[in-house]
C-alpha cells in the first residue's frame, strides 16, 4: 500500500507527532555525507514522486532552458492528464526532461551502476537509497542549483 502513488495518507485523532532534535549543523553534516560527487552522469528528480505543484514549478523554472544531460522525472500516473492539460509536461519534455509515471527512482532498473557512476538529485531520500540500493555516487544539490548548473 505504502508504495502506491494512488493512496492517500490518513491520520486519526489529534495525537502529536514524534519530535526530534535537528539543527542546521546536523543538516549540513548529513548533506555532506550524502553528497559524494562533484558532478553526475544523469539527473533524477523524485523520491518521493513529484506532485502537480512541484511539476508546475519545474516547468516554469525550465522556460527557455534545456538539460545538458539525461534528466528523469518521477511522477504518479494520477497527475498525468492534469500536467499534460496544463502544458507542464510539454514544457519539461521540450527542455529534454523525461517524465516517468508510477515507478521508483531507486528500485526500478533505470539507474544501473554498470552504466552510471554518479547521479545528480535534489532528493535527500533519493540520495540515501541511490547510495545504499543502487550503489552509485550522488551529487546532492537544490533544484535551483540543478537548473542553474545542468541546463542552458
Amino acid at each position: 500500500m505504502g508504495t502506491s502513488g494512488a493512496c492517500g495518507m490518513f491520520t486519526f485523532g489529534e495525537e502529536e507527532g514524534e519530535k526530534i532534535d535537528f539543527d542546521k549543523n546536523e543538516m549540513q553534516k548529513i548533506h555532506d555525507e550524502l553528497n559524494t560527487s562533484e558532478k553526475g552522469d544523469l539527473i533524477t528528480l523524485g523520491s518521493p514522486q513529484l506532485g502537480i505543484e512541484e511539476i508546475g514549478d519545474l516547468a516554469s523554472m525550465l522556460k527557455g532552458r534545456s538539460f545538458q544531460k539525461r534528466c528523469m522525472i518521477f511522477c504518479p500516473r494520477a497527475i498525468q492528464g492534469q500536467i499534460r492539460d496544463l502544458g507542464y509536461s510539454k514544457e519539461i519534455e521540450r527542455a529534454g526532461g523525461e517524465i516517468l509515471y508510477d515507478c521508483c527512482t531507486c528500485l526500478s532498473p533505470l539507474v544501473d551502476n554498470k552504466e552510471v557512476d554518479s547521479v545528480v538529485t535534489n532528493s535527500v531520500k533519493g540520495a540515501y537509497y541511490l547510495k545504499s540500493s543502487n550503489k552509485v555516487d550522488v551529487n546532492l544539490k537544490s533544484l535551483k542549483r540543478i537548473v542553474e548548473e545542468e541546463t542552458r
Binding site: 500500500m1 505504502g2 508504495t3 521508483c104 528500485l107 531520500k125 537509497y129
Partner: peptide, 11 residues
C-alpha cells in the same frame, strides 16, 4: 528492535 524506519519497500 524498537520499530522500522525508512522506505515502505522494506516490506
Amino acid at each position: 528492535f524498537p520499530f522500522g524506519i525508512g522506505s515502505s519497500v522494506g516490506a
